[in-house]
């Protein structure tokens, strides 16, 4: 499986609703980034053992663990991995905790594709620098 057209690292998307998923996928396609969709926190953590993605877009409400725990696990594996949370507009508490826990940002649904694009471009530029 080493035939890949893209030089970019892929983006992991965790458990998001269809609109969020489509928006992120579209932006990634434009930027020539592959995406990998994961169904649960456990699956994501297992995947991180094999691959270091460019970043992770995760829903704030996971079925198998709470988002704070997820962030902690991710940080233990790789504390420089950017995590972007997607949640509801009422989740002030959750958003603040996520940022304190080291998430790069917290978006409310519906997410704005321009903001996603700006973030991804910034991350790509940083990644290529290194």
């Amino acid at each position: 499986m080493n035939v890949t057209m893209s030089y970019n690292r892929s983006v992991f998307i965790l458990n998001n609703d269809r609109h969020t998923l489509n928006t992120i996928s579209e932006v990634c396609q434009r930027l020539n980034i592959e995406t990998k969709t994961l169904g649960s926190g456990a699956q994501l953590l297992a995947e991180l053992d094999h691959e270091a993605p460019l970043c992770i877009f995760s829903t704030s409400k996971l079925a198998d663990m709470d988002s704070t725990a997820l962030l902690q696990h991710i940080q233990q594996l790789n504390d420089e991995l950017p995590v972007l949370m997607v949640g509801q507009s009422g989740e002030v508490h959750c958003a603040v905790n996520a940022i304190k826990q080291g998430a790069l940002d917290f978006f409310t649904q519906p997410i704005n594709s321009r903001r996603i694009q700006v973030i991804l471009q910034t991350l790509l530029a940083k990644d290529h620098e290194q």
């Binding site: 002030v92 603040v96 940022i99």
Partner: peptide, 19 residues
């Protein structure tokens, strides 16, 4: 208030202790 997520996130990024 309810729905101030983006502002709260900004506040914490800028060093607010809590909300």
């Amino acid at each position: 208030g309810h729905g101030d997520v983006q502002m709260a996130v900004q506040a914490i990024k800028d060093g607010a202790m809590n909300f």
